[in-house]
Simulated scan of single mutants.
Amino acid sequence: MRVSEGDVEVEAPDPRDGSSEGAGDAVFFNPEMELNRDLTVAVLRAYAERTSAGAANVSRDGTTAGAANVSRGDEERTLSYLDAMTATGVRAARAAEAGYDVTAADVDADAIDLARENLALNDLPGEAVESDANVLMHSERFDVVDLDPFGTPMPFADAAVAGTRKLLCVTATDTAPLCGAHFDSGVRKYDTVPRNTDFHREMGLRVLIGALSRVAARRDVAVEPICSHATRHYARTYLDLTHKATAADKALEWLGFVHHCEDCLYREHEFGRIAHPPEDCPNCGSARCSTAGPIWLGPIADREFVGSVADEVTPNMGEWKRVSRLLDTLAVELDTPTHYDQHRLCKQWGAPANKLETFLDDLRDAGYDASPAHYGGTCFKTDADVAEIRAAAEPSGD
C-alpha cells in the first residue's frame, strides 16, 4: 500500500494482512510509530540547526530550509544519519527529506530493496545496504545513529556508541522488562534492578537511559539526554554524545537509586553506585519498601532544545498535534526523578480528585514547585513529598 508521512510517500506492507511486528520474515511497517517518526524529524531538524548554527540550504522545490550541515575546518559537510534497522525505509526517507546524508541498513534483503525503492520514489539521495547493524556500526561512523529495534536495543548499544559521532537516538519497546513487570528479563537486559511502581513509565525510561549511559562510559563517552519521552508502548531518548573520559565520569554521577513505599507511595532518591535503602518507610512506617537502580536520575531533556524542536513541528505531520502537546509538557516538566498520579493519590486518601490545574496551583501556593508530567493526563511532578502534597493539595470534596 502507498503511505504518506510528512513530506514523503512510501510503499509499505499493509499491517492488516495478518502479519505481526517481529514475527515471520515479512518486512514490517508500524503505523502506530508515526508519532515517534514525526518527533524524530523535528529533532533532526532542530539538531542540524544547533550543530550548524543556523546554516541553510535550498530544498528540492527551491525554497530555503534548514540544512543538516556541519563545519569541518573551512568546509561544510552534510550530517550523516544511519537508520540501523530500516525495514520499509520510511524513517530513512524522512531523514533524507530533512537534509541528512542517509544510510538505511537491514539484514533483510527484501527490506533493503524496499528502502531503496522508497528513496527513489521520493527522488531522495541515500544508500541502502544489506548489513547486520552491529557489524556496520563497528566498521563505520555516522554523525547520527537511530536504533529502532523490535524489543530491547541493548544488544546493539555498544556498537551504536562506537559508531556514533554526535547524536544517538534509541527506542525500546520492551516496556515490561524496562519497568520491572518482567523482573528477571529487566535485570538481564539492562543490568539494573527495575521495579514495577505506580510511576512505571518513567521507571522504564530512566532504566533505559541509565543502561545506555553505562555502556557509553565503557568507551569513555558521556551521554546527555536532550529529548526523551515514554509514550504508549515504548520509551524513546535522544542522547548527545561527548567523546571524553572526564565527561563520561561526570555523566555517571547522574546514576542512583529510588526507594519507593508500596503502601503510602512515599519515595526518595539518592545519587551514587551503592544503595542505602531505608529499613521502613519514613512516612508511614511500612516495611514494604522497594529499591530500584542504578537508574538515570538526571534531566531527561534539555528544555531549550525541546523548545527548538517544537518550532520544527509542522502541520503536514500526521501526529503534529500530539507531538506539539508532548513537547509543550516536556518544556515545563520538572527534573525530579519520579512523578505522581493525582488520581492514584486521591484514591489512596479517599478523596475526590479535582482538576489537575487546581491541584498544582494549590501546591505552588504552598511554596512548592509543581508541573504536569507527560506520562499521563493526571501525572505531575513536584519537589514536595507525599505528606506535604496531601497537606497542601488534598481536595476537600466541598
Rank of each mutant, 00 (worst) to 15 (best):
A222L: 03
F359H: 11
L363V: 06
N57V: 11
E319T: 14
N196F: 15
C179T: 12
V90Q: 04
D174P: 04
C346E: 10
L35E: 03
N283T: 15
P337W: 03
E127W: 00
K347L: 12
A92C: 08
V58D: 00
L363F: 06
R325W: 07
S4G: 11
P225M: 03
D83N: 08
P177F: 06
Y266T: 11
L114N: 06
T231N: 09
T171P: 05
G151K: 03
E394W: 00
T164F: 06
P282W: 09
M317F: 15
A351I: 04
N354D: 15
T237V: 11
M203P: 04
D17P: 01
A216K: 01
C284Q: 01
A230Q: 00
P125I: 09
D110G: 13
P153T: 08
N134Q: 12
L208C: 08
D110I: 01
D191S: 14
R165G: 12
M85P: 01
H260N: 14
T338K: 00
R218W: 00
V145T: 14
L363C: 09
V193C: 07
L114I: 08
D263V: 14
L265D: 02
A387I: 07
T88L: 10
V215R: 08
L345S: 05
A93K: 05
D123N: 14
F271P: 00
V309P: 00
D302Q: 07
D249T: 15
T314M: 08
R195S: 12
D143W: 03
T291M: 05
V258C: 07
D174F: 04
